[in-house]
């Protein structure tokens, strides 16, 4: 494997790991349920995306031809993340989860 590929893979892995970590920190730091929905659904998308990219580069650099199956992981994640976020939000409104102070507007009655 070339040196360049190794650096690219390491950089992408570190970047993806950092983003996933920030998503997890957001889960702990943000004040209420609705704001916490944002951290994991978004930061992790980029995190998983870059980790997947480094996997594509790794297996391609090994010289077994370019392999795109990992891309599907990200595609499936992109398709399912909004649905789960939406269901979580609906469930939260159903049980009238409290919103943080300073939230503008109201969730709907279910």
């Amino acid at each position: 494997m070339s040196l360049f590929a190794e650096y690219a893979i390491s950089a992408l892995l570190l970047f993806g790991g950092a983003f996933t970590l920030i998503g997890a920190i957001g889960l702990a730091r943000l004040p209420d349920f609705y704001t916490r929905l944002h951290g994991p659904t978004k930061a992790t998308t980029v995190g998983v995306g870059t980790i997947m990219l480094s996997s594509v580069i790794y297996f391609s650099a090994l010289g077994e031809g370019i392999d795109f199956s990992e891309v599907l992981i990200t595609v499936f994640l992109l398709m399912t993340a909004p649905v789960s976020a939406n269901l979580l939000a609906k469930a939260a409104m159903h049980v009238s989860v409290k919103t943080m102070k300073g939230t503008e507007g109201q969730p709907w009655e279910q």
């Binding site: 929905l37 944002h38 659904t41 978004k42 992109l78 993340a81 976020a85 939406n86 939000a89 609906k90």
Partner: peptide, 13 residues
């Protein structure tokens, strides 16, 4: 789905 994926916004209902 696009609104939920782009950070900063989640479509709720």
């Amino acid at each position: 789905s696009t609104i939920s994926l782009t950070p900063g916004t989640v479509s709720a209902d």
